[in-house]
């Protein structure tokens, strides 16, 4: 138990027009999990439930080995959070905000915070409202990292940011994970970020988990199969998430050897798969019908 930094068991949350259904996710310590899905698939809702910012209807969430409601305060004391649009009080300076936040953490390290700000190039004396989106994210990240957390939760931290900042973030996360007691849970619809550094990938679609697996297993084992349009029906049963366009079709094969055994491969091309392909084929199925 202790060795999972995050454990979600049969989590449910109902809204009028949307529901999270039986979410199960396990992330061992020492690893990064990428949480992918289309906008509105339920990523932010799940993260808010983990942070106990909203109440779950049923199920269980353990963070750092403890129930996230019962042990909310000690868990938050050891958790760093960066939201999609980091929010603070606009009229306060970066320094004041951090100082304020630091008052609530038992292990706040002001020196570490200052170092991070210098590294990120954020001016401590600037007001939050004067910061660009990237600077805000960096400020949130600096605060999230300066109280010696064990667990980092990031909700779309890279959306709307330029590639340079995104790359810096990946560096920071890799640095954080050098301690094998740590863990990172990080949602993004930019799959390339996750494709690089995540150890595990969880795909959520329409409030349901499609899969939660080792990333390498997916990228190495699954293949993208493409072929001519006329033949698409022959493969309908054996391809996952078959997509048909004007010129051809494509789909995912989870066991290429079994597939090869029962189909003539000379008319098909087999490609290495990317997370984007996975997302395109497995998410938003309702649009294809």
């Amino acid at each position: 138990m202790e060795d999972n930094i995050l454990e979600i068991i049969n989590l449910n949350k109902n809204y009028d027009k949307f529901k999270l259904c039986d979410i199960n996710i396990t992330l061992p310590r020492g690893y990064i999990m990428g949480f992918v899905g289309a906008n509105g698939a339920g990523k932010t809702t799940t993260i808010k439930l983990i942070m106990n910012m909203i109440r779950r209807d049923s199920g269980k969430i353990n963070v750092i080995g403890k129930d996230n409601i019962k042990y909310e305060i000690p868990i938050k004391n050891k958790t760093g959070y960066v939201g999609e649009q980091p929010v603070f009080y606009d009229d306060l300076t970066v320094g004041w905000t951090a100082n304020f936040a630091g008052k609530f953490y038992s292990d706040w390290d002001g020196a570490a915070f200052n170092e991070l700000l210098t590294r990120f190039g954020v001016d401590k004396t600037k007001k939050i409202k004067q910061l660009s989106k990237g600077m805000r994210m960096k400020t949130a990240l600096a605060i999230a990292l300066s109280h010696r957390p064990e667990f980092l939760i990031l909700d779309e931290p890279t959306s709307g940011l330029d590639p340079v900042i995104r790359d810096e973030l990946l560096d920071i996360l890799m640095e954080f994970i050098q301690d094998e007691r740590h863990g990172v849970f990080f949602s993004s619809h930019i799959t390339s970020d996750i494709e690089k550094i995540a150890d595990y990938v969880t795909l959520i679609d329409n409030g349901k988990i499609i899969f939660s697996e080792e990333k390498d297993k997916i990228l190495n084992d699954w293949k993208l199969v493409k072929g001519d349009i006329n033949k698409s029906d022959d493969y309908r049963d054996d391809l996952v998430g078959l997509k048909v366009s004007k010129t051809g079709f494509s789909g995912i094969v989870k066991d290429i050897d079994a597939f090869k055994a029962c189909h003539d491969m000379s008319l098909l091309t087999i490609d290495k798969i990317s997370l984007d392909d996975v997302l395109l084929h497995l998410a938003k199925k309702e649009n294809q019908k």
């Binding site: 890799m174 050098q178 550094i197 995540a198």
Partner: peptide, 17 residues
């Protein structure tokens, strides 16, 4: 394993394997 993952910017599981 972790250092190499950071250097190459790959996942820890990848370098471990």
């Amino acid at each position: 394993i972790r250092q190499l993952a950071q250097d190459l910017k790959t996942s820890v599981i990848t370098t471990k394997r």
